[in-house]
């Protein structure tokens, strides 16, 4: 009962409810596009971008903007487009270029933060940018609104373009032959992922975002065999894990990001076992 009382007390604060809403929305968006990312073999973009977002965050911190989004979002979106082109290029070493961009952003980001930061606790700042804030996040009302609007746009894009996204993901050649501009849809996926990563950064920190994008997709692929099933299952797993993770982090006083990711890992384990049992019983 004491736990329940603690929870009720926490949820009487606005900022806790904001964090919860943002967590659910972000995990929903990342789960849907995560499926596409994994199936298109674009996971590298998610990983590369999370490093870029850290660099961008550092720049924003150094400039001293009140609203980080203004810097972080454009930089991440542009990097997403660059990464996509690097990854598809057969001529230069695409994967090496991606590694270069990721690790470069990390180094520059940390350097900027340690040289220019006026904060007394630089390593604390760096740590929370990388792994998410230590305790429950404090989001402003503006943050909440930005996140709400972006999430709704992302969800609408996914639902409206569901059939086209499926077709391009399954077979780009066929889709192009049918008159679909696959380049535009690849671009759409890359840009949306960038937006999701920026949104998710405040929740789990930049380094852990890939987990939010990739784990639910891989988990649902263990148990579902239709595309629609995988998408729906991935969304459910991700939202449940986010809720469980956020609530556990409140009750156990653990950092939010890693707790959510741990919930995702456990879910993957469960799905792995279920999938194996399903295969054996056939």
């Amino acid at each position: 009962m004491k736990l329940l009382d603690t929870l009720i007390e926490y949820f009487s604060y606005d900022f806790v409810i904001y964090a919860f809403v943002v967590g659910v929305l972000v995990s929903l968006c990342s789960a849907l596009f995560g499926v596409v990312l994994v199936l298109k073999r674009f996971s590298f973009i998610g990983d590369g971008l999370s490093h870029v977002a850290f660099g961008a965050m550092a720049i924003a911190a150094v400039i001293g903007l009140t609203n980080n989004m203004l810097v972080v979002l454009p930089i991440t979106v542009i990097s997403a487009i660059l990464l996509l082109r690097a990854g598809q290029s057969t001529r230069i070493k695409g994967d090496a270029a991606i590694a270069m961009i990721s690790v470069g952003s990390l180094a520059v980001g940390y350097l900027l933060m340690s040289v220019f930061s006026t904060s007394a606790n630089v390593s604390g700042d760096v740590c929370s940018t990388l792994f998410g804030s230590f305790s429950i996040l404090t989001l402003s009302k503006t943050d909440l609104w930005v996140c709400l609007v972006m999430s709704v746009v992302v969800l609408a894009l996914f639902v409206l373009f569901y059939n086209r996204i499926f077709s391009v993901t399954f077979d780009e050649g066929f889709s192009r032959a049918a008159g679909l501009n696959a380049t535009v849809y690849n671009l759409l996926v890359a840009v949306v992922i960038a937006v999701i990563i920026v949104l998710a950064m405040s929740l789990v920190g930049s380094l852990l975002i890939s987990a939010l994008v990739i784990f639910p997709a891989l988990s649902s692929m263990r148990v579902c065999k239709s595309f629609k099933g995988v998408v729906i299952c991935s969304a459910i797993i991700s939202v449940v894990c986010a809720c469980v993770g956020i609530i556990s982090s409140i009750l156990l006083s653990t950092p939010v990001g890693p707790t959510v990711v741990c919930a995702d890992i456990i879910a993957f384990g469960v799905c792995f076992v279920l999938g194996s049992i399903g295969k054996l019983s056939k």
């Binding site: 059939n163 499926f166 579902c224 239709s226 595309f227 099933g229 995988v230």
Partner: peptide
């Protein structure tokens, strides 16, 4: 790829 025969056919 996780998709059913119906889903693949319909994408035509």
């Amino acid at each position: 790829f996780p998709a059913t025969v119906g889903e693949v056919t319909l994408s035509g």
